[in-house]
Amino acid sequence: MNTAGPMTPRPVVVRNIHIESDDVVTLDLATESEAWSFQPGQFNMLYAFGVGEVPVSMSGDPSQTDRLVHTIRSVGAVTEALCRTPLGGVVGLRGPFGTPWPMDTVRGRDLVVVAGGLGLAPLRPVLYDVLRYRSDYGRISLLAGARTPEDLLFKREVERWKQQAAIDVHLSVDRAPAGWNGQVGVVTSLLSSIDISAQTVAFVCGPEVMMRFTVRELQRRRVPAERIYLSMERNMKCAVGFCGHCQLGPSFVCKDGPIFRYEQLKSLFWLPEI
C-alpha cells in the first residue's frame, strides 16, 4: 500500500476489453511498468472517476504480472461506469485485498470447482493455476451454471479446456433456447455426474442461494465441512476493515474473507438476514 493511505486509488489504464455477454465485460488493467501479483480469490476496489468504488474479484491469470484482469457485471451506477470505460481509459484501483482460495490445501488432491453465474470469475485464476501446475493436482472438475447459454462466461476458453481434457468441464443453464444441446438444470445437478473421492476439496462461488444448495448437495455427497470453501459477498465500502459494512458474524469479509471455509461459517450460513 502506498504512503497516500489505504483509501487512495491509483490510476490504471484499460488495456483490453472483452465483451462476455450483454451486461458483463472483462477489463485488463495495467500501468506502464508495474508488475502485479495476487492470489486466486483476491479482489481489488475499482473506482470510476467521480462515480464511486466497488469490490471486484480478479479473474485473470496470476502468472501474468503485467496486468490485472477483472470481470464486471453492470448492475449499478459504478459498475455501469466501469463497464463503459473505453480502451485506453483510466480507472482507479486499490488492492489486492482479502483471503485467497487455499491452493496449498488442494495440492495432491481432487478439486471440484462449482461456479454459478458471475461466480466463475473469481474461480478462473484457480483454474489457470491448476492448469499451469497440472501434475500437482488430482482430478479437477469444473461445474459451471448460468442463466442461459448466452450468459456463460469465458465461453471460448471453457470450450478449450473441455477439448484439452485437463479439466473435466460440465456446464448447465437454467433455461435454454431451442437448439441448445447442453445440460439444462441447476448447477448442483451436475454434481451427480462426477466422482467424489474421500480427498475431494470443493471451491464454490455464486449467489448465496446457489451456494446453499451446493453445500447441501456436497454434504449429501459426503464432502465434509472442512473441505468446502465459499466466496462470500457483503456490502463493502473500504476493504480495509474500517467501515464495518462487510461484517458476517465475527468476520469481516474484506479481510477475513472473501474466501471462507464452510466449517467457519456453518452456524451463520443458514440464518436469514445475518
Binding site: 467521480g50 464511486g52 474500517f242
Partner: peptide, 10 residues
C-alpha cells in the same frame, strides 16, 4: 465505528 465512503464528482 461504521462509516461509509461517498464519491462525488462535479
Amino acid at each position: 465505528f461504521c462509516s461509509t465512503v461517498e464519491d462525488t464528482g462535479d
